[in-house]
């Protein structure tokens, strides 16, 4: 029975979370109150883990909550639950788009969507940058230590990625080492 409930709860979360990982947080808060599967403190832990491990945040949250509730089968069930609505909806939309791909109206719509899509990524990146640069400001001073390290690391990465053609995971690993050494 727990499997069906887990699948159903995360199916609903996947269906109503429009806009990605962060949109699942309020839905999971409601789930916590409704089911008692995890406390709000555990939800905060989940967000921290989900944001910092590889993989989409929404998927990570589902795996974590599923595991807490019912072990490995729970993690699998919850993950499948959260992705199923996406898969169904996207497949329907993709099929429709294939049909009307050459249509002038579809093409006009996408001409408007493309710059919007790039702008939304830019906006997400912008808020990420402000968060990163503000990370050291808790102490009150405007230019604090953590903040300078982040700026220097960012500048170094811009220069390095321009010259060195390596897999991004290498830059990510190097940044993790810098973070540990300089206690970012």
């Amino acid at each position: 029975m727990i499997w069906i409930r887990l699948f159903a709860e995360f199916f609903i979360t996947g269906l109503f979370a429009v806009g990605g990982g962060a949109a699942t947080i309020p839905l999971l808060r409601d789930m916590s109150a409704r089911t008692g599967w995890f406390t709000l403190g555990e939800l905060a832990d989940m967000v921290a883990v989900a944001e910092s491990t590889p993989g989409p945040i929404g998927v990570n949250m589902a795996s974590f909550a599923g595991y807490r509730t019912a072990g490995i089968p729970g993690a699998v069930t919850a993950t499948l639950g959260i992705v199923t609505p996406s898969v169904i909806v996207v497949l329907i939309i993709a099929r429709l788009l294939d049909k009307y791909r050459e249509n002038r109206i579809t093409q006009s719509v996408f001409r408007g969507l493309r710059p919007a899509s790039a702008a939304l990524i830019a906006s997400a990146c912008f808020s990420l940058i402000t968060t990163v640069l503000n990370a050291g400001r808790a102490g009150g001073s405007l230019v604090s230590y953590g903040n300078i390290t982040a700026v220097c690391l960012a500048a170094a990465l811009v220069a390095a990625t321009r010259r060195i053609k390596a897999h991004p995971i290498l830059f990510i690993a190097a940044s993790a080492v810098v973070g540990i050494i300089f206690k970012m």
Binding site: S52, R114, C125, I129, T131, I180, M184
Partner: peptide, 26 residues
Amino acid sequence: HAFAGIRVCVCVLIAKTLAGMLKKSA
């Protein structure tokens, strides 16, 4: 600390991809 470093790197990687796409998207 490691993840604070990783976050900076992710920012830079996204910004770079974006810069490459900007001309074509707009």
